[in-house]
Write a protein that binds this DNA or RNA. Structure first.
Length: 426
RNA sequence: GGAGAGGUGGCAGAGUGGUCGAAUGUACCUGACUCGAAAUCAGGCGUAGGUGCAAGCCUACCGUGGGUUCGAAUCCCACCCUCUCCGCCA
């Protein structure tokens, strides 16, 4: 959530920055809540202070064997009024909290203004799409012909938006994840993490999936309540630092984590229905950094470069886009999308999203570090896909397809494929 | 699934109704002593919110939520979590 102090100080300035991303901040509602909070909180604390004074005095009088009935008489009048005020305070604080949780992050000043994806800005383009001297097939046709992708059976087992991989294609999928983990741990300084795939509501709230996006999550009944399947490893991994104070000399924390991701994609019926572009379950290798505020934008550039390195090593052409204010996720202050070239779609498609959340998630999570004066300060959080494994598999199948229907194994992956250079139909 | 124990400050560990945000130890910081260090001595040392230019002051927090009371770490109720043993089990 936003820092409430900035809203108190200059709600107008905050509102105009939010307007850039299409969010209409209700300043009047905020100010009325804030005024009510102040009145009620002041009165509540006065009553508490008076009660504490009287109770202490009663205790002292009793200790000396004096008569405390006058004090008792006054003290007797406090609990009723105090209870009323405490309830009002809890209520106004809950309403303020709900108000703040519904406000998205402020876009960074370097983020281009715009309504939707049309206004995203291309930063760079790396690699040249290959020209094919035969009709290009998409990954569904390539993978199905190889006997490695079987969507019909996946539908029987689970339903639409699930996939079943077999044989060398399934192995290629595994190889990609292994390769990504190895590069990020050995060369980019990330610590490998294995984390829960099912988490509690506090964790979902910490990274911003709740309360606004519950409809996108898979919910699991548990102990009279429920838990949630993670939509990304960002959730369990970033929450490592929830409710904690990280020593300054440990920053930045860099974690890499390979998990399946589960998304109900409730709002996207009809989009990308073919193939494994948009699935209820997919694997992703996620990069997370917990970083000093002064370093977070440099960190975002580095992290994006770490994700790009995977595409470069795989020889996949891509471009990097700066998302405009209207296209960014709720919690992000700045986001780069990396889009890989998919010849089967004749288009660049998102394969990684790298974001700086500044203190937005950290404030929700109460994640802090101790500055050089020993004061707790909010950390900044970054994350990015490095990369989405399923979509990377799609990119390899499409970009490395051959005229005879086989797929060349990218050189970087052969060590993970037992030296296999080509996947051909069995 | 069954039985038991327990959740207090970075850690250890007191505290069973009143002056307790909490003894003591330890860790850490500052100072003294020392050529320096160790040891010793003195002081400091939780988080959050509010208010104030500031020094400061006020409030909340002893797993969570409710209750009793003028007053709760302490009493009552519910829940959550952790640990130990047994059973089952990848």
């Amino acid at each position: 959530m936003l820092d409430i102090h900035s809203l108190r100080k200059d709600a107008g300035a905050v509102a105009s920055r939010l307007a850039a991303r299409g969010f209409d901040l209700d300043i009047a509602a905020f100010q009325s809540l804030e005024a009510e909070r102040k009145t009620v909180q002041t009165r509540t604390e006065e009553l508490q202070a008076r009660r504490n004074q009287l109770s202490k005095a009663i205790g002292q009088a009793r200790g000396k064997g004096e008569d405390a009935s006058a004090l008792m008489a006054e003290a007797n009048g406090i609990p009723a009024e105090l209870a009323t005020n405490e309830h009002r305070l809890a209520d106004v604080q809950a309403r303020m909290n709900a108000f703040l949780l519904a406000v998205p992050n402020l876009p960074h000043e370097s983020v281009p203004a715009g309504r939707d994806a049309e206004a995203n800005v291309e930063v760079r383009r790396v690699g040249t799409p290959r020209t094919f001297e035969f009709p290009v097939r998409d990954h569904v046709d390539v993978g199905t012909a190889l006997g490695g992708l079987d969507f019909d059976t996946a539908v029987k087992i689970a339903g639409a938006r699930f996939s079943l991989m077999k044989g060398p294609v399934a192995r290629l999928h595994r190889a990609l994840a292994q390769f990504m983990l190895d590069v990020h741990t050995a060369e980019h300084g990330y610590t490998e993490v294995y984390a829960p795939y099912i988490v509690n509501a506090d964790s979902m709230r910490g990274t911003g999936q709740l309360p606004k996006f519950e409809q996108d999550l898979f919910k699991v009944p548990h102990n009279d309540g429920h838990m949630y399947l993670i939509p990304t490893a960002e959730v369990p991994v970033t929450n490592i630092v929830r409710d904690s104070i990280v020593p300054l000399d440990q920053l930045p924390l860099r974690f890499v984590c390979h998990t399946p991701c589960f998304r109900s994609e409730a709002g996207s019926y009809g989009r990308d229905t073919r193939g494994m572009i948009r699935q209820h379950q997919f694997d992703k290798v996620e990069l997370v950094q917990i970083i000093h505020p002064d370093r977070s934008y440099a960190g975002l550039e580095e992290l994006t470069g770490h994700a790009e390195a995977i595409l470069q090593r795989l020889g996949l052409p891509y471009r990097v886009m700066t998302l405009c204010t209207g296209d960014m996720g709720f919690s992000a202050a700045k986001t780069y999308d990396i889009e890989v070239w998919l010849p089967g779609q004749d288009a660049y498609r998102e394969i990684s999203s790298c974001s700086n959340f500044e203190g937005y998630q950290a404030r929700r999570m109460q994640a802090r570090f101790r500055d050089d004066k020993g004061r707790p300060q909010t950390v900044h959080t970054l994350n990015g896909s490095g990369l989405a494994v399923g979509r990377t598999l799609v990119a390899v199948l499409e970009n490395y397809q051959n005229a005879d229907g086989s797929v060349t194994v990218p050189a970087a992956l052969r060590g993970y494929m037992g030296g296999m250079e080509r996947i051909a139909a069995a």
